[in-house]
Design a binder for these strands. Structure first.
Length: 777
RNA sequence: GCGGGCGUGAUGAAAUUGGUAGACAUACCGGACUUAAAAUCCGGAGGCCUAUGCCGUGCGGGUUCGAGUCCCGCCGCCCGCACCA
């Protein structure tokens, strides 16, 4: 091999050697700490983008560092090959998803390994493999049996363009997360995962793992626990009640109406028989189909008097029932206490509807008392029967107790989070394993009949709507309960259901006797480290947790949180803007690799910014990275003969000159800083410190060249080797090659050289995540 | 409105955790080598000033022998949630 630096030659050769030698095969050897790094799966578009390069280089760097530290590492990948994005991409090029995927996954796999990623190739799998989605369906059945999955005709978000239902979280500002078109709402049978019931665990669990503070807060707000009181209002002329939820019961004497969400399930009954029933129902329909964001734009919008009344549980007053469009069905009970004097929305609504406004909490300041303004603060109660005069904070507990004693109320909390709508009226995902029978209703597919295969032949994708519905061979079946002819459920699972348990499958994707290999999962999960973009870390992570909370409750998993530690990476920008085809500023990783070599691209990606901040792609910086690595290449090669010489052991050798001592110290301090940088996932600092150390190393090597002694050659050799070990996680190919040229027989990828030659990480058995938690407190 | 993050050169950013602010790098300027350019190497550089010096980590206070770092109060930017019962 020639001595000029040719990244492509070196990189291809080392990638092949790593693969052939199987150094990245997962090991569960006893007596070693473990490290499982999870990366959110790539959508198999067939071509990497800069975001992938950044994401996966971070993951790879971490795992290579951990291997060098003597950890058993699990690092592999699964392809997110089911779901709407794949189906749409295939339609665009006029292929079936299956045809399209074959090519793309192959190409994508090559590109991933081309980045030098140290994946365990044997463990790579795809979500559209029936061996995988069989178990996704199995999870569905388990949750269905337990009541965690239910079918409901409640109003759900709907995208006309994608022709499918959407989860609440997949609607962004009234628009579909995929096509960005305005969404609407429909009332069709859809499948839901009960998130409400596991909300307390989801909230508590947040405290147990290391998560970026912003993401933690986001999920906490998202779950949104509101403690309060459920109060029953008896309906006049009926033996039923309306239940409202309130967080401010101290204002209950100021109730002048009860506001019902247009979706409120009792409304049809309340309206039936009234003269305007048809008109009212039409109006309700109108509100129900409008996306929530639209409806909430004007909370003071006119509602409807129902001409029905309920009775105030404390005063016995007649309180009118109204439909208030600003009231949300999924929050609390979908019915609210209308206290216009002490609630902004109720006030606006009361003004529009001409309802009375009754002040019951007085701030005790004369000029504000009696004014028309809404008073939201504390004060003392007025006009509140036997509770008048109490401070509002005292009244909160006193009135609650009073109502509870009268059996008119119960304490509780409501969660802002919505149950997760998981059914999609689209073709390319795991079919929901349910059979609809005219006699038995929806019946679970027996476990033995799994997987319910997604047909890949005879699918007509040109017709609008769900192609599965028109696929007779798929649809026609028998009822597992009564044996009569029946129809399959044509909806498929939301893409996040597919990925929700992928990290368990990563441990052993070839396991046949269950959804996961229990030995492997007990050993590896929860994952020590998880890296993704912001959406992964917030949205996907949340869904993963929901599914796991249920599996844990059902005793199906040995853990209750998927990850010990998550971090997110920023975006890669070009000229300060997001890379996009429409702006024409897309930088293609394959071009960069051809120009600079993988190691330089990796180095530049890690060096450009700390992982969590955005950075601007810059050619100058890539060139600088290349220059640095080129310098290392020639620098180390030049030293090979120097380090290889054997000098006689001369008694006259000074023990250690000042220069030796100074350099030895610089090496020690530098290594410590570099190690700390790796531990804290601050790779930018690692790169800077590596460059600094290299500079010192080069200067010292000139000194050694001028006056070589056994001792300083020994020190220099140690320094060069340490330097290569420390640079290895970021620039693995170059360092392997140089390491070999120095005569080291055992590959860098093959052994725990770091622990051997430099020292153990300060945290010992602890993981990165735990260390970060420890720093926080 | 609520919550979270962040403010240091032209730029990405360092600062041994309270001890010489701006390491290292990019861009920039100058020099060397070249017929020339590129590459490479060497040197310069926070601001003000002729200079001794003075001022400098968003702004204003405070604690301290000493503050980018700790405390209080403002200002500005980014992100998330939202008329939440």
């Amino acid at each position: 091999m020639s001595d000029s630096y040719s990244p492509i030659t070196i990189e291809k050769s080392w990638q092949a050697r790593w693969r052939e030698s199987g150094v990245f095969a997962t090991r569960q050897t006893p007596g070693k700490p473990r490290f499982f790094a999870y990366e959110y799966p790539p959508f198999p578009s067939g071509e990497l983008h800069m975001g992938h390069v950044r994401n996966y280089t971070i993951g790879d760097t971490v795992t290579r560092y951990k291997r060098l530290q003597g950890y058993n590492v699990l690092y592999t990948q699964g392809f997110d090959s089911l779901g709407l994005p794949v189906e749409d991409a295939a339609i665009k090029v006029g292929k079936t998803p299956a045809q399209w995927l074959d090519e793309c996954i192959e190409k994508m796999t090559d590109e991933l390994f081309g980045l030098g990623l140290s994946y365990d190739a044997e463990k790579i799998f795809s979500y559209h493999d029936p061996e995988y989605y069989k178990w996704t369906q199995w999870i569905f059945l388990k949750l269905f049996e337990a009541g965690a999955i239910y079918r409901s005709k409640q109003w759900s978000d709907w995208c006309e363009t994608c022709i499918t239902a959407l989860a609440f979280e997949q609607v962004e500002d009234g628009r579909c997360w995929r096509c960005k078109e305005q969404t609407t709402k429909t009332q069709q049978e859809q499948w839901y995962i009960d998130v409400h019931s596991v909300a307390p665990e989801l909230l508590d669990g947040l405290e147990t793992f290391d998560f970026p503070p912003s993401a933690k807060v986001l999920q906490r707000n998202w779950i949104g626990c509101l403690p309060g009181l459920f109060v029953e209002f008896p309906i006049e002329g009926s033996d039923t009640t309306i239940e409202v939820f309130t967080t401010k019961v101290s204002a209950i004497y100021g109730t002048t109406f009860i506001g019902l969400a247009p979706e409120h399930p009792d409304l049809p009954d309340l309206v039936t028989g009234t003269p305007d029933a048809d008109k009212v129902l039409a109006a309700l329909r109108d509100w129900c189909t409008t996306p929530l964001v639209e409806r909430m734009k004007d909370p003071g919008a006119e509602g409807i008097f129902l001409d029905r009344y309920c009775t105030h549980p404390l005063t016995g007053e007649r309180i009118p029932l109204c439909v208030a469009p600003y009231v949300q069905a999924d929050l609390g009970t979908g019915a609210i206490l209308g206290c216009p004097a002490h609630d902004t929305n109720a006030h606006r609504f009361a003004v529009t509807m001409g309802l009375p406004i009754k002040t019951v909490i007085s701030p005790g300041v004369p000029e504000t008392a009696g004014s028309d303004a809404v008073y939201l603060g504390e004060g003392h109660l007025v006009d509140s029967g036997c509770h008048s005069g109490l401070a509002s904070s005292e009244a909160e507990t006193a009135i609650a107790q009073d109502l509870i004693d009268r059996e008119a109320a119960r304490k509780g909390e409501t969660y802002r989070v919505r149950d997760w709508c998981i059914s999609r009226q689209r073709y390319w995902s795991a079919p929901i394993p349910i059979i609809h029978c005219d006699h038995c209703g929806p019946v679970a597919v027996p476990e033995a009949d799994l997987p319910v295969l997604l047909p890949t032949e005879g699918v007509d994708m040109t017709r609008p709507g769900n192609p599965l519905e028109h696929h007779e061979r798929f649809m026609a079946t028998q009822c597992p309960a009564c044996g009569r002819p029946a129809r399959r459920e044509a909806s498929t699972l939301d893409t996040f259901v597919n990925s929700s348990w992928s990290y368990m499958r990563n441990c052993n994707p070839h396991y046949h006797d269950g959804m996961y290999d229990p030995d492997a999962v007990t050993y590896w999960v929860p994952c020590d480290f998880d890296i993704g973009g912001t959406e992964n870390i917030t949205v996907a992570n949340f869904y993963f947790r929901v599914v796991l909370k249920w599996l844990d409750r059902l005793g199906l998993t040995p853990m209750s949180e998927p990850f010990k530690s998550s971090i997110f990476h920023g975006m890669v920008l070009k000229d300060g803007r997001k890379m996009s085809k429409s702006l024409g500023n897309v930088v293609r990783p394959t071009d960069l690799i051809a120009e600079y070599g993988v190691d330089s691209v990796r180095f530049q990606s890690m060096w450009a910014a700390r992982p969590d901040s955005d950075y601007n792609w810059s050619d100058e910086k890539a060139a600088a990275a290349r220059r640095f690595l080129t310098g290392v290449w020639y620098g180390v090669l030049d030293l090979v003969p120097v380090l290889g010489q054997t000098l006689p052991n001369m008694d006259g050798d000074p023990v250690m000159t000042n220069a030796d001592k100074k350099f030895a110290n610089a090496l020690h301090v530098g290594s410590g800083k570099i190690q700390a940088g790796y531990e804290r996932i601050e790779f930018q600092a690692v790169c800077n410190d590596l460059m600094l150390l290299w500079d010192k190393l080069k200067k010292y090597s000139d000194r050694v060249r001028a006056h070589a002694t056994r001792r300083n050659i020994e020190l220099l050799r140690r320094a060069v080797e340490q330097f290569l070990i420390m640079l290895n996680p970021i620039a693995p190919h170059l360092t392997e090659e140089l390491w070999g040229r120095l005569g080291n027989p055992v590959m860098l990828a093959q052994s725990d050289h770091w622990r051997d030659r430099i020292g153990q990480d300060r945290t010992g058995q602890e993981t990165v995540g735990q260390e970060r938690v420890a720093h926080e407190h």
